[in-house]
Simulated scan of single mutants.
Amino acid sequence: MSGRLVETITPRFCETDGLQHINNTVIPVWCEATREPIFEIFNPGLKMESWNLIVAGFEVKLMAPSFYGAEVRVETHISRVGNASFEVTQDLYQGDRQFAQQVTQMVHYDYQANKSCPIPEAIRAKLAELTA
């Protein structure tokens, strides 16, 4: 991995409204789906019994409408790494037009201890490869 992760999504008919716009509630779902390679860095194999991430929050900026019938490109990068948390920025495009951006705060989390825990150096190195 280097720089940005890029994935393409084909909007489904059920994600649109009567004006052929993509419903705004779909953006966080697409963003979570395209963060899967980052989840793999923390939890290879995506084993739920050893899950170690939690979403602390996210913000979606809507810049323009998006439409049914045109593929969506999601570009993902790491925009900040802290001690136990990190930030993922995802830019969404149809063609060359950016229509949304989501910034998600993620926390490396120990569910048994019920608290955050420092991000290991090996994982930090992999996150650094995705820093824009």
Rank of each mutant, 00 (worst) to 15 (best):
M1C: 09
S2R: 14
G3W: 08
R4M: 15
L5Q: 09
V6K: 14
T8A: 11
T8H: 08
I9L: 09
I9V: 12
T10G: 00
P11V: 09
R12I: 02
T16V: 12
D17T: 07
G18N: 14
L19D: 10
L19T: 09
Q20G: 10
Q20D: 15
N24L: 06
N24D: 10
V26S: 00
P28E: 07
W30N: 01
C31M: 06
E32M: 06
E32K: 04
A33C: 12
T34R: 05
R35G: 09
I38Y: 03
I38L: 02
F39D: 03
E40N: 13
I41C: 03
I41A: 02
F42D: 01
F42Q: 01
P44E: 04
G45E: 09
G45M: 10
L46F: 12
L46N: 05
K47Q: 10
K47W: 04
M48L: 14
E49Y: 08
S50E: 14
S50L: 04
S50I: 09
S50Y: 00
L53K: 00
L53H: 03
G57Q: 04
E59G: 13
E59T: 15
V60R: 08
K61G: 02
L62H: 15
P65F: 03
S66E: 07
S66N: 02
Y68R: 02
Y68N: 08
G69L: 05
G69D: 04
E71Q: 10
E71L: 05
V72K: 07
V72E: 05
V74L: 09
V74T: 09
E75Y: 01
E75K: 11
E75G: 08
E75M: 11
H77C: 15
H77W: 13
H77V: 06
G82P: 05
A84W: 03
S85Y: 07
F86M: 03
V88Y: 05
T89C: 11
T89V: 10
T89F: 08
Q90I: 03
Q90M: 05
D91H: 14
D91S: 14
L92R: 09
Y93T: 13
Q94E: 08
Q94K: 06
Q94M: 04
G95R: 06
R97G: 08
Q98K: 13
Q98L: 02
F99R: 00
A100M: 02
A100P: 04
Q101P: 04
Q102A: 13
Q102G: 07
V103W: 14
V103C: 08
V103E: 12
T104K: 05
Q105R: 11
V107F: 01
V107R: 00
H108Q: 02
H108G: 01
H108D: 00
D110A: 02
D110V: 03
Y111K: 00
Q112E: 12
N114V: 08
C117P: 01
C117R: 15
C117V: 13
P118A: 01
P118R: 03
E121W: 08
A122P: 00
I123P: 00
A125G: 04
A125H: 10
E129W: 07
L130S: 11
T131L: 10
T131D: 09
A132C: 13
